[in-house]
């Protein structure tokens, strides 16, 4: 497959995963606006911005503010994270870039996938923060998540399982790994800054990963940060756990036919295996979990660079 098309599919996977994850986060966050204490609302916004490695816009986030100010600030922050065109991390930006990658590679995806994604994009494009805030912002975010879930299902059902599929999935899983690591580290940092771990924050992480029921079955209804981490990082049965995402990265890499840059390709596969092993084997016994997560985060960025080196930006000498 054309390297640029593979790259386009890879980025489509990444951007759509990014848009979906942020929508899930925002859905949880706007739900807290209904009845949760200001500390939790503040903490939620902080966590989102920290996970994006981004400063909130001027005027947002004051822990000492009253209800009215908190709600007004939340409106500003939600707009920044949802519709702001100049924010490269906003839902709109990620969605638009994912859809643009799909537009440029629509000869490589099924027509059903394109139509599904394009329809979802057109719906988002017509809205503004004022539209969604008036009625039910959580419903808006839930609908986008549902659209993107539908897209994933349509892709699953209709896309040919060739290299295009592998690169799409690769992008999705690498993005998921990076987002999960960033979010978990942001939560750990928040706990440290507050000198206290709040169950509500960790519970919302479980909801974000659709892991609340699984947690209850594996442990109990009492939410403990270490147990949440065990589940979200090391449980191979939980869809979206770090462990499972990394396994998926390794299996997608293994499925891609041999590329021209054999050294770069071998290094990439070794890195993926090492990361899987780190999370599967080292995680349960590690004492400094934050450090291990940082290591996974750093190495996942190398994964990204490795994909490019092996299949896109390889040296063409002697490959013809």
């Amino acid at each position: 497959m054309l390297s640029r098309s593979a790259q386009g599919l890879y980025w489509m996977g990444r951007y759509l995963e990014r848009a979906e994850r942020l929508c899930r986060l925002l859905r949880l966050q706007v739900e807290t606006l209904v009845d949760r204490p200001i500390r939790e609302i503040y903490s939620g916004w902080s966590r989102i911005y920290a996970s994006l490695n981004r400063e909130p816009p001027v005027g947002g986030l004051e822990l000492g503010a009253n209800d009215d100010f908190t709600l007004a600030d939340s409106y500003t922050l939600a707009d920044d994270l949802t519709f702001e065109r100049t924010n490269p991390d906003s839902v709109w930006s990620s969605f638009a870039k994912g859809r643009e990658n799909a537009r440029q590679t629509r000869h490589c995806i099924s027509s059903e996938m394109w139509t599904c994604l394009n329809l979802a994009y057109l719906r988002v494009q017509e809205l503004s923060i004022g539209d969604i805030w008036r009625v039910s912002p959580e419903r808006f975010y839930a609908e986008i998540v549902r659209d993107l879930d539908t897209f994933a299902g349509v892709a699953e059902a209709t896309m040919y399982r060739g290299e295009g599929w592998n690169f799409l999935q690769l992008g999705r899983h690498i993005e998921r790994v990076q987002l999960s690591v960033a979010l978990l580290l942001a939560q750990i940092a928040t706990d440290r800054s507050q000198d206290e771990a709040y169950g509500a924050d960790w519970t919302s992480l479980l909801h974000l990963h659709q892991a609340f029921d699984a947690y209850g079955r594996s442990y109990s209804i009492e939410v403990q940060p270490d147990r949440v981490l065990d589940l979200l990082v090391g449980d191979p049965l939980l869809p979206g756990s770090l462990c499972r995402s990394l396994d998926s990265v390794a299996s997608e890499l293994a499925a891609i036919p041999p590329g021209p840059a054999s050294d770069a390709e071998a290094a990439l596969q070794r890195l993926a295996s090492r990361l899987c092993s780190l999370v599967r084997n080292d995680w349960p016994d590690t004492e400094d979990r934050q450090e291990l997560l940082e290591q996974v985060g750093e190495q996942s960025r190398n994964l990204h660079r490795g994909v490019s080196a092996a299949y896109v930006d390889y040296d063409t000498a002697d490959t013809s």
């Binding site: 497959m1 390297s3 021209p260 063409t316 490959t319 013809s320």
Partner: peptide
């Protein structure tokens, strides 16, 4: 995506030129 070598045209793919 294309390059010419020795008078032939090649495209850059994930499997090489």
């Amino acid at each position: 995506d294309l390059r010419v070598e020795d008078g032939f045209v090649y495209m850059r793919t994930t499997s090489g030129l």
